[in-house]
Design a protein around this nucleic acid. Structure first.
Ligand SMILES: [Mg+2]
Length: 323
DNA sequence: GCGACAG
DNA sequence: ATCTTGTCGC
């Protein structure tokens, strides 16, 4: 099995490759073998898109209810596994459990790294009155490399705005995605695409499209980027990842990890949390000052727009691109 | 079938 | 995140 992509993609494909002929496993079992059941959907995506091209027995990986991937019926029947109505009947008897799969618990290792790095998070304001705020976001797209193998490409964009919300600088970086999206590991997925762009720009604080400490181990994307680049950072998310809302406070594990700030009279709130070198109060202050008139704050909204892959024929010159 | 877990 | 057209309203 050729191993071109990052280690998480590799481990998923390797686990699938360890399922013998005539046996089956599930997306969830592979996810558990990697160390976190949350990765089940990512496993399904990777197996269905990359499985065939990488020569792994993709047809032997099914959902927990026995539902097979499109086109898997024929190759399964060829090895004696019957599928009726898009699902196998004897999953339990043929199942290869997580413990028997060949895979390294890479997600568990990543979780340990998050816990250690989380100790370095500082929840105090480094800059009292930020004047230049960077917004960062990443867009994704599946492509095929020169050899025709499926690869997910990340396009990270950073925009810097001043107090009047005018764009004063920006940067774009395109690179292969290092891992699929798995809830609670977003920082690992997006950091590589953003690091280079962020390090060549000047700003007081970076606003991320995601959470800061409002995370299971208090290390969301904004904390990840903030700590690893040692820059002030906060997270702004459209949806909640953890915690309960009490008034405008977002509470998790008995402590406040952020805010659920109203933007429209009856509209859904925006979740704001400190990432690094920004206080709870500071995060709300920065959000309000740099939001502009839309629900998603200007820096993040502009970065989101800049990150989008240009339509064929509208490519912009001057972009920094690298492998 | 429902709830749910950022992007 | 991505797949995707038009439509409604400020
Ligand atoms: Mg995003």
């Amino acid at each position: 099995m050729p191993l071109r992509p990052g280690p998480v993609y590799e481990e998923i494909l390797r686990a699938a490759s360890s399922v013998p002929r005539g046996r089956l496993t599930t997306f969830g079992e592979i996810a558990r073998a990697l160390g976190d059941y949350r990765a089940a959907k990512a496993v399904a995506e990777v197996i269905s898109i990359m499985g065939r091209a990488y020569g792994v027995p993709w047809h032997r990986v099914v959902s927990s209810r026995g539902e097979i991937l499109r086109g898997a019926e024929d190759p399964l029947r060829e090895e004696g596994v019957a599928a009726q109505g898009g699902r196998v009947a004897d999953l339990a008897r043929r199942l290869v459990e997580a413990g028997e799969l060949e895979a390294r618990p890479i997600l568990a290792e990543m979780r340990r790294a998050q816990r250690i790095l989380a100790e370095r998070v500082i929840l105090e304001d480094e800059v009292e009155r930020p004047e230049l705020v960077a917004g960062a976001d990443v867009a994704y797209r599946w492509e095929r490399d020169e050899e025709g193998l499926p690869v997910e490409v990340a396009r990270g964009a950073v925009v810097v705005v001043d107090a009047d919300l005018r764009v004063v600088d920006g940067s774009i970086q395109t690179s292969p995605a290092v891992m699929p999206y798995v809830p609670t590991y977003l920082g690992f997925r997006e950091f590589p695409a953003l690091a280079r762009a962020l390090s060549r720009l000047s700003f007081d604080v970076v606003m991320m499209d995601g959470h800061g400490i409002a995370h299971p181990v208090f290390f969301g994307e904004a904390s990840h980027v903030g700590v690893c680049l040692d820059v002030p950072a906060l997270g702004v998310a459209k949806r909640r990842l953890v915690g309960k809302v009490r008034g405008e406070e977002l509470i998790y594990m008995t402590r406040q990890v952020g805010w659920a700030l109203p933007v429209r009279p009856e509209g859904r709130p925006v979740y704001v949390s400190p990432g690094h070198k920004v206080s709870l109060e500071g995060s709300a202050r920065i959000f309000k000052k740099f939001r502009g008139g839309t629900r998603v704050p200007a820096p993040v909204r502009l970065a989101h727009k800049l990150a989008q892959f240009p339509k064929p024929g509208e490519g912009r010159p001057g972009e920094t691109s690298s492998l």
